[in-house]
Simulated assay, not measured.
Amino acid sequence: MAKTKVLIVEDEAIIAKDIENVLTKAGYKVVGSFPTGEAAIAAVEELNPDIILMDIMLKGDLSGIQAAEIIREKSNIPVVFLTAYADENTVDKARSAIPYGYIVKPFKENELIATIEMALNKYKEDEDLKKERDMLKNMVIEKSDQDSIFVKADYRLNRVRYSDIYYIEALKDYVVINTEDNIYTTHTTMKEMQRILPAKDFVRVHRSYIVRLDKIFSIKYPDLVIEGKMKVIPIGGMYRKELFSRLNLV
């Protein structure tokens, strides 16, 4: 089994060497150690590490946070920050780089290893979710003569007819597709659902809701009611005009 490749970016030579010794002893492969963000960025493509340990406060023109942001945009390699500061201001600044963890110096060997393993597991989960989302997008048939989509839920792909959908609800990083008989929760966005669903049949009425027009039972602003389920759905102010323009009013 190939060893996990780690790149160290730390401007204190003694600390960098200590980290390298700990990681080597634990079975990792340290592919490089650099004192500046600039040097790390230049070496990332060639060394192709699995994970990067990055000190936040570095010598040179770039901070560890800035270097991590550049690496994330170019290479999408998970970064764990090393820092002697755990104050709220430092953590807030570091969030912009979307790190996979923090280690506060000085740290114990088991803390370092545990943080790396958790970061690698989280990164793998994120990549798997991206692949699943891409697969779902590829499974969606977008030709106008098609009447359904495939939704990944409950570890399988489920065919859902557009005509069976009553409404879609946003739930953090997921959407919940409600039909007459089933509920499907899948990892995608409302924006993506708007792109997929036929615009002639569906309308977004709230930042958290898309409804099928012919499933609307009644409207009494600021709410509407979905037939059958009698689900009350709020109408967002910015979506009101679009909704009413799509109705056959008499």
Rank of each mutant, 00 (worst) to 15 (best):
K3C: 04
V6W: 04
L7H: 06
E10S: 02
E12D: 11
E12P: 05
A13S: 14
I15H: 07
K17E: 15
E20D: 12
K25W: 08
G27A: 12
Y28E: 01
Y28L: 04
Y28P: 02
K29F: 13
V31Q: 05
G32N: 06
S33L: 01
S33A: 09
F34I: 01
F34P: 07
G37N: 05
G37R: 00
G37C: 03
G37I: 00
A39M: 12
I41S: 13
V44I: 10
L47G: 03
L53Y: 01
L53G: 01
I56V: 12
M57K: 14
K59V: 13
G60L: 05
D61T: 10
G64S: 06
E69S: 09
I70D: 12
I71A: 07
E73G: 00
K74Y: 10
I77F: 02
I77G: 01
P78M: 01
A84G: 13
A84F: 09
Y85G: 06
E88P: 01
E88V: 11
E88Y: 11
S96W: 01
S96Y: 03
Y100E: 13
G101E: 00
K108Q: 14
K108W: 02
E109R: 15
E111N: 07
M118L: 13
L120V: 04
L120S: 08
N121V: 05
E125A: 13
D126M: 07
D126V: 00
D128Y: 04
K131C: 02
R133C: 01
D134T: 02
M135L: 12
L136Y: 06
L136Q: 15
K137T: 03
K137M: 12
K137C: 04
N138L: 12
M139P: 01
K143G: 12
S144P: 14
D147G: 09
S148L: 03
S148T: 07
F150K: 07
L157S: 05
R159W: 02
V160M: 08
S163W: 08
I165H: 02
A170M: 07
K172M: 13
D173C: 05
Y174T: 00
T179W: 06
T179S: 10
D181C: 04
N182H: 09
Y184L: 08
Y184P: 12
M190I: 12
M190C: 09
E192Y: 11
M193E: 10
L197V: 03
A199D: 11
A199E: 14
F202V: 06
V205P: 03
Y209M: 04
I210G: 11
V211Y: 04
I216F: 09
I216H: 07
F217L: 15
P222E: 13
D223T: 09
V225I: 13
I226G: 01
I226E: 02
K229C: 08
K231H: 05
S245P: 03
S245K: 13
L247C: 15
L247R: 11
L247G: 09
